[in-house]
Nucleic acid binder design. Structure first.
Lengths: 189, 189
DNA sequence: AGAGCAGACTAACAAGTGTTAGTTTTGAAT
DNA sequence: ATTCAAAACTAACACTTGTTAGTCTGCTCT
């Protein structure tokens, strides 16, 4: 681990503020104050507010798309793959609680990279859906509308960033296990 | 049903714009353009941008808090109550797709009513959690961490507004039934 | 000691923000 | 036709926005 550059610190601080108020409501002066400097000084490190958003969102989106590809091509059965997807989300959300907020809420404010972001998201969802469809075809998964299954799982997983900070006592493994149990086995006894 | 006043139309249009870009990124001039008028004219009908947000969010939040109270005090067993909660969310999200976006994403921009909103939300979540705890105590529900169960369900239900518009072919009853099945019974066969 | 430079600063800009004041248009009721 | 209020308009305001230009400070390497 290299020590973080000043640019890294700015991006991390920005992500924290974006989580609290959203990209549009955070001004460069807010960010500067949080960094203990003046707004103009930020531009010694970054080229624009937009660049900050791009760096935050795109890197995470690429992690997801790449991660699910590895899972999809692995040897597990389909329920196993879904458990791995849950682990992937828990891991990324744990390591990047602030950035996940921007990914979820501020992707529409991407200017140059909006199309690229959407292509990553579409690819991700298509692969996710394929795992579910394969699981239905192989009778591992109930024959419910696969899009509703994906929606249910994805809504939960995408909201993890909201809950993880409140449950610091819960470690990542326990959380992933509980989620797998609930999402896959259901809650009824 | 009375015909909508001009104020109603402004609020509805605002909610639509807020869903697309968020409260902070929508300007009064954006809203005016969408209404086919000039920004200053909006103030013949509303007193501030903030008032619009308040009206959108508080009315829905009150619907939820009131709705879950009725369910909690009903005679069903606890799994039945959870199914009713799912129906409540599907119903409100169907009737108010745009407003749900603000409720989820822009509540922190409430100025005068933030405390009131948070009290409604806390009350709602406390009641939800009570249903789950009662269900575990009565052996209807698996003895998993009740907060994780609530988190899973609530994440899905709060995200409904994102998916409902894409699935117009799906009626509210079918959706509620599928969700109940997935969330309560799980997805494995 | 001095050079060089990363990284802070002050000052300012053009454009955009929510909102107000005052005026004109519109359309229904008398 | 006149009245009158609802609801549109124009013009302007004070403030905030992201960003640039130019300058000063302080550390590191010779």
């Amino acid at each position: 681990m290299m020590q973080p550059t000043r640019k890294d610190e700015i991006i991390k601080t920005a992500a924290k503020l974006f989580k609290e108020k959203g990209y549009s409501a955070v001004t460069m002066r807010d960010l500067a104050t949080a960094m203990g400097m003046k707004a103009a000084s930020l531009y010694n490190h970054i080229s624009s507010k937009q660049e900050i958003l791009k760096i935050i969102i795109i890197s995470i989106a690429e992690d997801f798309t790449q991660g699910i590809d590895v899972i999809y091509n692995s040897e597990s059965n389909n329920l196993g793959k879904l458990s791995q997807v849950i682990e992937l989300h828990v891991k990324i959300a744990t390591n990047n609680t602030y950035g996940m907020a921007s990914l979820n809420n501020d992707w529409m404010h991407l200017e140059g990279q909006l199309d690229y972001y959407l292509s990553l998201r579409n690819k991700y969802e298509a692969t996710f859906l394929n795992i579910i469809k394969d699981g239905i075809a192989s009778s591992e998964i109930k024959a419910v509308n696969p899009e509703i299954i994906m929606f249910t799982m994805l809504s939960t997983l995408r909201s993890l960033f909201l809950w993880i900070p409140k449950k610091e006592d819960l470690n990542a493994n326990d959380l992933a296990n509980s989620l797998s149990r609930i999402l896959i086995q259901g809650i009824n006894k």
